[in-house]
């Protein structure tokens, strides 16, 4: 297997290297990728068309919003997939090991507990800022959602999984994830019902107190919130399923 791998790697590497001489140099402003009308359009027209100064957010949530919706679905699928692969009934677990549940550490350490108690609200506040400020600075739904999910993971690490699950039981996690995608696609379907194409936010100015251009910007924020819901929920779900090997006490 080792020599086979080596041959494959050398052949692939040689193939990929053979094209390097054809590539533009590092940082070339004249390269086709940077000079083509696509990239130029995103840089110069984003603000006039959607009043969002952060081009990455605008391209992500508007121009390529369809992609991003499925990106959210990828996260959702990962959460459901991990759950469906690992999860088993508490009964099966008993049969396997004879123990009722995993032994969790009972009393938390004072210093760790107090520190995390202080940190978790701040982390969550910062996560909300990252979501809300994605139009003007680096950030957005994915990043904010992951930070928010991390705060729950910190709670689970500092106490135990059950403590975190009191806040976000599994059923709520699944609902949150589903609602996130529903918010995202809801914007799309609303556009469809109002007679425009899927995710064509401009038409939403009919039901929003905004001009067509502002409607794009507001819808992007709404969409990012949906993404944040899903990200938060699924990050925690992935952690709790992997960390407990699918043996959480409560079933669905």
């Amino acid at each position: 297997m080792k020599s086979f791998a080596l041959i494959t790697v050398i052949l692939t590497g040689w193939l990929l290297l053979s094209a390097v001489s054809d590539f533009p140099s590092w940082g070339d402003t004249e390269s086709p990728a940077n000079d083509y009308r696509l990239s130029q359009h995103y840089i110069t027209e984003t603000f006039p068309e959607s009043s969002v100064p952060n081009m990455v957010t605008a391209v992500l949530a508007d121009y390529r919003g369809y992609d991003t919706m499925f990106e959210t679905v990828v996260i959702f699928v990962a959460g459901i997939a991990i759950m469906s692969i690992l999860r088993r009934k508490p009964l099966d677990y008993l049969k396997d090991t004879g123990r009722e549940t995993r032994s969790y550490k009972k009393d938390p350490d004072l210093i760790i507990d107090t520190t995390c108690r202080l940190m978790i609200p701040i982390i969550q506040l910062f996560a909300l800022y990252v979501v809300a400020h994605g139009h003007h600075s680096p950030g957005g739904g994915f990043q904010g959602g992951v930070i928010f999910g991390a705060s729950f993971i910190l709670l689970a690490l500092s106490r135990d999984l059950q403590a975190a699950q009191r806040w976000v039981p599994e059923k709520r996690v699944l609902n949150l994830a589903g609602i996130g995608i529903l918010i995202y696609s809801g914007f799309g379907f609303a556009c469809m019902i109002l007679g425009s194409n899927f995710l064509d936010y401009e038409i939403l100015h009919k039901i929003m107190p905004a001009t067509p251009v502002e409607a794009r910007s507001h819808s992007m924020l709404g969409v990012e919130i949906g993404v944040a819901f899903t990200c938060t929920a699924i990050m925690f779900s992935i952690y709790s399923n992997l960390a407990s090997n699918g043996d959480m006490k409560e079933t669905l």
Binding site: A33, N34, L38, S39, Y42, I43, T46, M55, V56, V59, L60, R64, D67, T68, E71, V74, I75, V77, A78, A81, I82, I85, L86, F142, I238, N241, L242
Partner: peptide, 24 residues
């Protein structure tokens, strides 16, 4: 160029998802 950043956000998400399913 904003486009590669957008594309790679997708690729990162896909990478996380695949890794998670693989670990499961």
């Amino acid at each position: 160029n904003p486009l590669p950043h957008v594309l790679m956000l997708t690729a990162i998400v896909v990478g996380v998802a695949t890794l998670g399913v693989g670990l499961a």
